[in-house]
Design a protein around this nucleic acid. Sequence first.
DNA 1: AATTTCATGTAACCAGTTACATGATTCA
DNA 2: TGAATCATGTAACTGGTTACATGAAATT
Lengths: 183, 183
Amino acid sequence: MSDEKIPSTLSLAILGLIASRPLSGYDLRKLFRITPMGHFSTSPGAIYPALRRLKQRGLIRGKVKNKGTLRPKQLFEITGDGMKSLRTILSEPITADDIKWNLDRLLLRFAFMGDVLGKESSLRFLRELARETNKHIVSLQKHLEDSGKKMNITAKYALEYGIARYRATSQWAKNIMRDISAR
Amino acid sequence: MSDEKIPSTLSLAILGLIASRPLSGYDLRKLFRITPMGHFSTSPGAIYPALRRLKQRGLIRGKVKNKGTLRPKQLFEITGDGMKSLRTILSEPITADDIKWNLDRLLLRFAFMGDVLGKESSLRFLRELARETNKHIVSLQKHLEDSGKKMNITAKYALEYGIARYRATSQWAKNIMRDISAR
DNA sequence: AATTTCATGTAACCAGTTACATGATTCA
DNA sequence: TGAATCATGTAACTGGTTACATGAAATT
């Protein structure tokens, strides 16, 4: 309870996917390999240990098929605790830190949000994302203005790159908000 | 020789920064803390071990100041081998894999390229970056067309997010190419 | 005198990578 | 029957995180 273990991005991806339907480790590998969204390890050395950890923490449970065989196939499904934990993670407020360091994770949270928390939460999330992203853009621009003169050119370019990418994020969020609202 | 050890992004950042002027571990921490470009660990538990590894591999060397004291300050400078290694890393061709998985690293390479390899290399790099990024965008769009119907909405949004961000990258590259050419 | 900043480091831990390993099933 | 795919896993290694630790110098 007190120590809400925050899982890694990979674990969060696994938990979120399993929340929508039971999946095996192999299924997850396939998903990560073929879908171009997100950057997740497809290596068994990452996925199977991650599944074991989620299981140990009681967030998922495994249904074993072909019990007799040497290598029983295991389908994992989410538990009540897992669902609660997922909901908690998806409900966390967006911090400036997230914007700067964990943008991918925020997008992952958004990806699962529609099914788990619903449309209103998704809209709120996007609004918050756009706002926080804009704040960050302003701070980057301020840095560019303040230190631009002393910065060498490449550093300036790199900073502009950051700004351009965050602008794309903000614009995307606004577009999707429109799209979701229209549905 | 044969096994060109590819350093982590953090190590590459350190190596590239030290290439331009001697720096201490503390200097690096400060740089990573105050400059908003790049996402590098400012924790001593990451930086000092990274410096040790670079030193062990002969890519940097440390000049100790205040020899007598308990905590001598150490300024690191790049070695001939380090410079050679840096040049090699910066000269590597851009792969589709880099675009997908290591975009940050590519940008880091660009950041150091101007000083180390010169303007022509930077331009070539940006041209290649724009081209490979566009290729990747096309493949993402193709995936969206092919599987769009079967995808759930959020997966589609996530994919569009990816496309939007890569577009920003490509556009940035083109802008900077213009800028560099004009100088 | 107390706090902040300079400055360097270690130790326990965690998660991901690479490479290896096993065996069943399906398909050409 | 041989190759590809399904399917699960381990072991060694690597590097980053968190937290702890020390102490000098500068600032308030």
